[in-house]
Design a protein around this nucleic acid. Structure first.
Lengths: 156, 156
DNA sequence: CCCGTTCCCATTGACGCCCACGGATGCCCA
DNA sequence: TGGGCATCCGTGGGCGTCAATGGGAACGGG
């Protein structure tokens, strides 16, 4: 039970707060994550949330780049300037800031999606559409690769 | 929590004052930074702000240049000539001087961008445009040469 | 003496902490 | 096996605190 799994839809209250799923909080605690870090996903209208590894991932990549190059500077701005800390309140809730809303389209509901070592925040309809498209894509690929006599069934 | 992280937009009042984000002031205090340096970014319409390491960073960068060359002279003038020490008032605010405004285009709002060991001052619209372009650039790089040594990969 | 700069105080709006409620779940015991 | 109970979790609201902001007063240099 140490990885983020499954997805949950939670409500945003009038103050912009959302409860982080209890199971996610458990994972966070068991991993010893103290500070929750959030980054805009590069390819999706979603926010990636996780521990410091999320940022360290980019730091590692920066090590291979000339520290005085423009690319290095740009990576630094992306890794450090384009994210935010998320603070829990005493109830285990986080705030949907403008930074999150603008990138995801979230208003009054949020889908939490577990992605192993981190999780994502989505606007529920967006995620539903994305998930549907993703399934189809994967199904096509699977049927093709397997010679595709029958469709591939996934448990719901 | 000892690095400059995330970005904030603050207002400039009629006297030219802006509140430095509380979290940045906290980093400054925890690092024991006494004097805040400000100088022009070499590659962006932004001001770099930080402690003494910032100046050392510039100096290292300039070491690659012949100290008696015109380029060196020009770099020195560019970076130092218009550089400044920033003083806080009792409220934790700094002044938007003319040289800051001229280089960045800042008028009545400022974006503070954390970049690990220092932070930057941007005119909000400029930064937003820059950030958008940067995201696109990094995303292209990600999808184009996947697995390449210089590629940028997202976690998971 | 005037102007710019720094200090001090007031306001307001956001955020963190506290408590309260209701539904669902799981547990215990008959 | 089924009913009742305790607990946990998601949710909502009230309140105190602090940060961001704005304006006025005092100070100092030119």
């Amino acid at each position: 039970m140490d990885r983020f799994l499954s997805s949950f839809v939670h409500n945003v209250d009038a103050k912009g707060r959302v409860s982080v799923p209890a199971s996610f909080r458990q994972v966070i605690a068991s991993r010893g994550i103290r500070e929750l870090f959030a980054m805009r996903s590069l390819s999706q209208p979603a926010i990636d949330v996780g521990g410091p590894e999320l940022m360290e991932h980019y730091e590692k990549q920066m090590e291979a780049v000339d520290p005085f190059s423009d690319l290095y500077q740009e990576l630094a701005i992306y890794a450090y300037g384009d994210g935010a800390y998320l603070k829990f309140d005493t109830e285990g809730r986080i705030l949907m800031t403008d930074f999150i809303r603008a990138h995801t389209g979230i208003t009054d509901r949020v889908t939490f999606v577990g992605v192993k070592n981190s999780f994502q925040l989505w606007e529920p309809d967006n995620f539903e559409a994305f998930r549907g498209a993703l399934r189809e894509k994967l199904r096509d690929r699977l049927t093709r690769d397997r010679g595709g006599s029958t469709s591939v069934e996934t448990p719901e």
